[in-house]
Design a protein around this nucleic acid. Structure first.
Lengths: 188, 188
DNA sequence: ATTATCTATAGATCTATAGATAATGC
DNA sequence: ATTATCTATAGATCTATAGATAATGC
């Protein structure tokens, strides 16, 4: 119906990526159609391919955007390992999947995806591991990276399990006991 | 084309469930069509709905079958905690996803599924936790169940991450460092 | 007669493209 | 003139159903 300025086009693209980034985390990489993403961005499906070459390109961009978002929020708000553990393994993080960590919410999807997707994912994982290493208290003897890998594995597993089980009591227990054990393993 | 005996029907059903159970773990719960599952079972799509009321019913049955399979193989073959850790976090388990543990390969799919699916999943998780508890060495002071939850979270996270990252060096490192740290945390 | 499976297809949905429309921007 | 978006649709695919076919089993 309308022509639009280049600035509006850039805003449209940003809106598409932001919505895709949230919906993919919530519903999985195959859980929402391009038509529905465009509708939520206030547009129709026909405009999509002037922004992206393919659906896969949007998947990569949306994952990269989710990574950047994590980078910005996490780095500033979690200065200590204890706070990082409590935040990652919180009921809030469990319930807000569409704005949460994609390393957990898309781990199965990524394993079944293209190499492009997996590379974006691995960059985010490496950044998270580096952050954990930097938060490791000096009291921790031994290799920081190895400990970071154990902590992050427990993160991804515990958050994933807490979202999968139907029993809310068990769900909370998983988050709580993994958090408290990680904290006691790596004392501040 | 043909009529078949009731015994053959039971075999057909078993074949459908066995194939679905493998393919769902490999490709995700939405990653393969009923037509393709039936084709792999040597039949066509038309016969499906005399066996199952809906696709969802097959998903539940296939997951329950995968659970039973785990129950049978794991219980007998992993008498000690150390062996359990080494088996779960092995490159073999990582690479044989279609016969591997569904708690790891379908954790994200389950979180986005119906309550029926989530209940089957939770039963499997509880059985695995009980097994881990029973393998816990007496030297471990403290609550066995809490330790089992930490170990299983690390299992699910580490195996998932090792399948998602594109770098095979990192993939192996994740499995190795999580396994060795778990073993040192819970000495035999 | 019943039924296990087949062929065929309706109806829904999804990706991607074609052509129209109405602004932008030289 | 260019282009950002729209409407419309082609072509593929998926779930579920209808009706036909050829054995089973009373």
């Amino acid at each position: 119906m309308m022509g639009r300025s280049q600035e509006e086009k850039a805003q449209s693209r940003h809106r598409i990526v932001a919505i895709a980034s949230r919906r993919f985390r919530e519903l999985g990489l195959g859980g929402i159609s391009i038509a529905d993403i465009m509708k939520e961005a206030g547009m129709t499906v026909g405009g999509f391919y002037r922004h992206f070459e393919s659906r896969d390109e949007l998947v990569c961009e949306a994952m990269a955007a989710a990574c950047q978002e994590m980078e910005d929020s996490v780095l500033t708000k979690q200065p200590t390992l204890k706070l990082s553990i409590q935040t990652y393994l919180s009921e809030t993080h469990r319930d807000e999947i569409s704005s949460g960590c994609l390393v957990s919410s898309l781990v199965n999807d990524t394993a079944r995806s293209t190499d492009d997707v997996r590379k974006v994912y691995a960059e985010r994982l490496e950044a998270s591991l580096r952050l954990l290493e930097s938060q490791m208290p000096d009291a921790c003897e031994g290799e920081f990276r190895e400990k970071a890998i154990l902590i992050y594995s427990a993160y991804v597993g515990a958050l994933g399990l807490s979202r999968a089980v139907p029993d809310s009591e068990l769900s909370r227990q998983i988050l709580d006991v993994v958090a408290s054990q990680l904290i006691s393993l790596f004392p501040v």
